[in-house]
Design a protein around this nucleic acid. Sequence first.
DNA 1: TTTCCATAAATCGTATACAAAATCGGCGGC
DNA 2: GCCGCCGATTTTGTATACGATTTATGGAAA
Lengths: 244, 244
Amino acid sequence: MDIDHPEVNVLQAEFRALPDVLYQSLRESILNGSLPPGSELRQELIAKQFGVSRVPVREALSRLQAEGLIILRPRRGFAVTSLDLAEIIEVFELRMVLEQHALETATRLRTESDVLAVEALLTAMESLDPQAEGYLPAWLDVNREFHNRLIASARRQRLSTLTINLRDTIEPYVRIESYFTGQVDDAAAEHRALFAAFKDRDATRAGEISRDHCLGSMNRLVDSIRRHGLSPVMMTPKKSRRAR
Amino acid sequence: MDIDHPEVNVLQAEFRALPDVLYQSLRESILNGSLPPGSELRQELIAKQFGVSRVPVREALSRLQAEGLIILRPRRGFAVTSLDLAEIIEVFELRMVLEQHALETATRLRTESDVLAVEALLTAMESLDPQAEGYLPAWLDVNREFHNRLIASARRQRLSTLTINLRDTIEPYVRIESYFTGQVDDAAAEHRALFAAFKDRDATRAGEISRDHCLGSMNRLVDSIRRHGLSPVMMTPKKSRRAR
DNA sequence: TTTCCATAAATCGTATACAAAATCGGCGGC
DNA sequence: GCCGCCGATTTTGTATACGATTTATGGAAA
């Protein structure tokens, strides 16, 4: 029996270079709101914070750009993507189509262990104390894992990546919304219904619930934006002196 | 009247840096088969060919990687993505879902000029001489533009990008298949039917035709692969001396 | 005081340089 | 004759350096 086991996945996980670390860290900062939409990303600053040069920083930024999380203004640097209402709605449209398909496939192909894992996340989500400190971010995290685990049951790598990507794109806006409303658990019943259909292998119904769930999330967010605007923190109050 | 006009779009188009040129060129080479799946991409070689350093090359490669067209083996360089049959089918599944949705939306939102532009591409495609030199690649190019133009009528930027991306991912395999079969125009009737539904604003029907069209393309390609394998040129006959 | 322009500082994009790892070759052992 | 090991070469990944462009600053003129 060999002791040292340079497994393939270990190699891929362990040996990932600096750009990957930077990519993950920056991505997380964007998703959890530390870098709100509109923030400018100074390469030198990021490089210093991580103790590296600007080269791997640029590589990580390139990836985030291809993913759509940040945009590049030539010669003017990167900035966190700031979506307007129409773009947010478009992302939700895509999520509706893809997640309906994903849940149909997942429900058809799921195993027993999928059901157990999803149920564990569901009960974890439900048993969070709404009064506890940091409830909202914790709920959002578990909610995210719940949906990811459901979709992962479809065993479709690209489908999973795409769907997660789209959800992450609007995650900052959902998080900001949650600070206004202070509520997130409007969809508790939908989650239970979705899990029931998933468990009962009712693929069509699971797909429909998932699509409607997306639609509900979209409506809540759009309403909130219509009421509160796109949140002051998103607007970069840059004084543009010259129109030029 | 000012002579020098540093227009915004000029800045964005003209001033696009080297990575963009490299990205486009490499992307084209992958799609048209110059760089078949499995090809290894040596940074130094590419840099020399374009007369630049490796830095912008790496940036272009990063983007292609995020797009899924190439993969990175850490410390072992980039290579053109080589899909197995299951992955090809997964991409087609996604295309079916997304293109059905895209055509429904496009048919609902299309304008008269959309119809004219699409029709022009359709007739251009039909009027190509099957006996002419270079017919197959030309047909594939026009066909690509035809579908892109249809989807662009939906006026959904992300949807268009995603769909085009997915089609491009399997484009090399379709091109290779066409060399075996020597035929590509099996779908001429489908194209006409799709255009008719598009013109008649029959969104549901347009979506269905599009999905079925995808399905047909998939079946033809899968059949071809089952008969001929994934083409010898795709297999990188690397002798892996050490498992380690 | 406001506007304009020139100069300075900051920032980006790319080239070059260097260290670490992988690949390729030959060599010896079995 | 085949397998495994060791050094040279290649290739990657990162740091540093430098020119070009943008943004900020300060002073002079209206």
